[in-house]
Design a protein around this nucleic acid. Structure first.
Length: 829
DNA sequence: GGCCCATAAGTTTTT
DNA sequence: CTTATGGGCC
């Protein structure tokens, strides 16, 4: 396709009456078809099923897309096809995804087909972002103003806490956090306070659950605010109560596409049905999903939605994508065999044509404990690295996030670059939220929750008493808190000290609000943080995190530059909680299995395949067979992330809540087909398989001979394997020290400020160091530090250098104690 | 109002 | 064993 945006017409203005689709055979249609015809090249690369999914544009279509079968490609090509054949204008296509990332990717990929016309798809987005759009248009129908604010979980909990206390309840016995989750659950099911089951209502706060939920909703209305659930529920209500509004959207949306349909919850399902089910009209709705990858049941997703599709949309075409383009036949064979143990599937059989006899089988490794597991995986990674495998092509996928620590610790010691995906998000960090609260009050003076958050941050002597006073005035006069505060400083009601402090706050906000339209928003933002004393607060903070927080604030300002205004930025942040990851750095990814869905890597490590951890005990206890099946799907997701190499690990001992426990290999290991799996003993060089013979309470994965035979452990693999690994390890680390210390960055979680830029290779003379393997690297990159220097480390905070050993520093950290780290990870204070 | 100690709890996560 | 939170004391 050519890159000209003129290929596709975008003259359908956002708020114009929905334009009719070009009439079949009409001049416009023919013109477009003529232009499109020679470019149907986009269909060429598709297999027959994919092509069918793209070209069956009319009527309901369910695409069951197995892992790695080109799902996103089908979705994007389908949209491109609809556009190219002139069946609809971009603004007539509703395309919903779950995550911003997925939405972004679709926009980009459609952009490739269509030219740069990404702006032309106004209704491509997440359920929530589309919900905002709908709600801004029709806010008044549910008693809101279209300037409503979107609360995040933090705000929500603080609000609920107030309400619980206002009811005279003990907020310790009835934690707001827990209640927030209950409300979330109700909203996932599309339930209003009136509709929640009696039992649920009774379960909280001595039967006041329903009352509190209703009070919460009322409070939101007075605050002109919504939570995430409301972004779906309000539109549902509008569609139900105002059929003419719904009709408008029926007319507008000629084509509806839904990604990851197996993850939809009841509310999303209701929302979708309202839009997609129309009387006596063929509905062009296309849902794409994979029932085998449904892993969000615990947060309200209903696999049933996908299983029921044909009933909901009679006459639906069901297309199965089963040709896998991602993984080797061994990996696929293992995954398919495992998932076949689930009942109640729609059933797909993945196949691949990649059948290179040399491709490695899925490897299962045993280790003595989780520490050894981390060590062995680290060695394997370094071995691969020395064979020129990029760290970016590798990932460690864990069941629970506590497993990550051991790997992080290990990689820090090894000096192995890693990135943690899915940790605390950038916009969820305290300093970012505080800063955002300031911006919110400036942009939306009625945002009481934001005001309350920062009125005493930094500390200004405006404690609980002062806040209550402001609160009372605000309630009495029915004005926002900022206004109430303004009134209060004009009276004698407050003691002089808090009064003066509050006056400064009020005057500051007035000045900033005044500047809002005259100053560039980034400048203003910086000014606010300076003048409020917020940056100073962190500058004066001597804790380990403070420098990182300041860095984050800078990053926040930087990221604002991409937006036109403060308001635009605030909307973005409310909905898009993620941050781009730094693709520049070569690093291995560590993440949970859940956050790995949709990703792929050449090499995947899956540690912790033990009963109780995976499948997780709690899933079994609370979910029964359904829970087990979801765990199995999670295992399936994990296995199918790998393209070439897949390593499963289990440890015989694992520390859980501090104490060591002996574990049994996961039942999922039993469920793998022997033909595609190879059991390796390299990892258990120490201590072998720590289970006494015959102690296992159920059939052993591969027959006892393979796992329990200590002989094979120490003879076949262990010794040479260990030695080889040792060798690789040394060469790999040496090489890395040489190349890294220039720009090495340790990132923990995304959005975390980069720290420890190279320790700077000063002209420090080669120190005499008692050191063995370090000696070599010393000449390469002498450390610029000297004993006694004060340094900062991203993970451990500030400390003093106690000893230097080439590039390895021994540091006495103020908080973390003595650690050995590479100099690239620390920066001078 | 701020700091320190004690206690409790401890999958998975998006918006 | 950790980490987060809350209460109590200065």
């Amino acid at each position: 396709m050519s890159g000209s945006p003129d290929d596709i017409p975008f003259f359908d203005e956002e708020d114009a009456a929905p334009a009719p689709a070009p009439r079949a055979g009409g001049i416009a249609a023919r013109a477009m078809a003529a232009r499109a015809a020679p470019r149907q090249a986009y269909l060429d690369g598709l297999n027959p099923e994919q092509a069918q999914a793209v070209e069956t544009t009319e009527g309901p279509v369910l695409v069951l897309a197995g892992a790695g079968t080109g799902k996103t490609r089908v979705l994007t090509t389908r949209i491109a096809h609809i556009l190219a054949t002139g069946k609809a204008y971009p603004s007539q296509i509703l395309a919903v995804t779950f995550t911003n990332k997925a939405a972004r990717e679709m926009k980009t990929r459609i952009g490739v087909f269509v030219g740069e016309a990404i702006e032309g798809m106004p209704w491509l987005g997440t359920f929530h972002s589309i919900g905002v759009k709908l709600l801004r248009r029709h806010a008044e129908l549910v008693g809101l103003k279209s300037s409503f604010t979107i609360l995040d979980t933090d705000d929500q909990i603080r609000l609920l806490k107030q309400l619980i206390q206002a009811e005279g309840l003990d907020d310790k016995r009835w934690p707001a956090r827990q209640f927030a989750q209950m409300i979330d659950g109700w909203k996932n099911k599309g339930l209003t306070p009136k509709e929640i089951p009696e039992g649920d209502a009774r379960a909280f706060a001595n039967g006041k659950g329903r009352e509190l939920y209703a009070a919460y909703q009322n409070r939101l209305l007075t605050l002109n605010a919504v939570d995430f659930g409301d972004l779906l529920l309000h539109p549902i209500r509008i569609f139900r109560e105002y059929p003419d509004v719904l009709k408008e959207y029926h007319k507008r949306f000629r084509y509806i596409l839904v990604d990851e349909y197996q993850d939809t919850n009841t509310a999303q399902y209701m929302w979708l049905r309202l839009l997609a089910q129309r009387q006596g009209q063929s509905v062009n709705v296309c849902c794409v999903g994979d029932d085998d990858q449904s892993i969000y049941g615990w947060r309200g997703a209903e696999v049933d939605n996908i299983l029921r599709f044909e009933k909901d949309f009679p006459g639906a075409t069901v297309i199965r994508l089963e040709r896998n383009y991602r993984s080797t036949s061994h990996i696929l064979g293992a995954a398919s065999h495992l998932i076949a143990h689930n009942e109640g599937r729609l059933g797909k059989t993945l196949f691949t044509e990649q059948a290179d006899p040399d491709e490695p089988k899925v490897q299962v490794h045993a280790s003595w404990d989780s520490e050894e597991e981390a060590r062995a995986i680290g060695e394997e990674i370094e071995a691969l690295q020395s064979k020129k495998h990029a760290l970016n092509d590798m990932a460690i996928l864990v069941r629970a996030s506590f497993q990550m620590r051991e790997f992080e610790d290990r990689f820090v010691t090894l000096g192995l670059n890693y990135r943690v995906i899915g940790g605390p998000r950038f916009y969820e960090r305290q300093e970012i939220r505080d800063a955002m609260a300031y911006f919110r009050v400036v942009a939306q003076p009625a945002d009481d929750l934001a005001f309350e958050r920062i009125v005493n941050v930094p500390k200004r002597g405006l404690g609980e008493a002062a806040v209550r006073q402001i609160h009372d005035v605000a309630r009495m006069r029915q004005v926002p808190m900022l206004q109430a505060a303004r009134d209060l400083v004009g009276t004698e009601e407050m003691k002089p000290k808090p009064r003066a402090a509050l006056r400064t706050v009020v005057e500051n906000f007035e000045r900033w609000q005044d500047m809002l339209d005259r100053t560039s928003h980034t400048e203003l933002a910086e000014l606010i943080l300076e003048e409020s004393g917020y940056t100073d607060m962190w500058k004066n903070d001597r804790s380990a995190e403070a420098p990182g927080r300041l860095e984050n604030l800078k990053e926040l300002i930087r990221s604002m530059e991409e937006y036109e205004s403060l308001r635009g930025f605030l909307e973005h942040v409310a909905l898009v909680m993620d941050a781009e990851r730094d693709e520049e750095m070569d690093a291995i990814s560590i993440m949970t299995l859940h956050s790995a869905k949709g990703l792929e890597f050449d090499t995947v490590f899956l540690p912790g395949w033990e009963e109780g951890l995976f499948p997780h005990q709690r899933a079994l206890d609370e979910g029964g067979r359904t829970g087990l099946e979801e765990e199995r799907r999670l295992a399936y997701v994990g296995l199918t992330r790998a393209k070439k190499n897949l390593h499963l690990w289990f440890a015989s001992n694992r520390r859980i809540h501090g104490l060591w426990q002996t574990t049994m290999p996961s039942r999922f290991l039993d469920e793998l087909p022997e033909a595609h799996v190879e059991v390796c003993e390299d990892g258990s060089a120490y201590g072998g398989y720590g289970r006494p013979d015959g102690q296992i309470g159920r059939p052993n994965p591969y027959g006892r001979s393979r796992f329990d035979d200590q002989g094979s452990f120490s003879n076949t693999y262990a010794t040479p394997g260990w030695q080889r690994a040792q060798k690789n390890r040394n060469s790999a680390t040496d090489r890395n020290w040489g190349t890294r210390s220039g720009h090495q960055v340790e990132r923990i979680g995304y959005g975390e400020a980069d720290s420890g830029y190279g320790a700077g290779r000063g002209s420090v003379k080669g120190r005499t160091i008692e050191g063995e393997l370090v000696a070599k690297s010393v000449s390469d990159t002498p450390s610029a530090f000297k004993v006694g220097d004060r340094v900062f480390h991203m993970k451990f905070g500030n400390g003093n250098i106690a000893a230097i050993d080439g590039n390895k520093l021994t540091i006495d950290f103020d908080k973390a104690g003595q650690k050995r780290v590479l100099d690239g990870f620390v920066s001078p204070v």
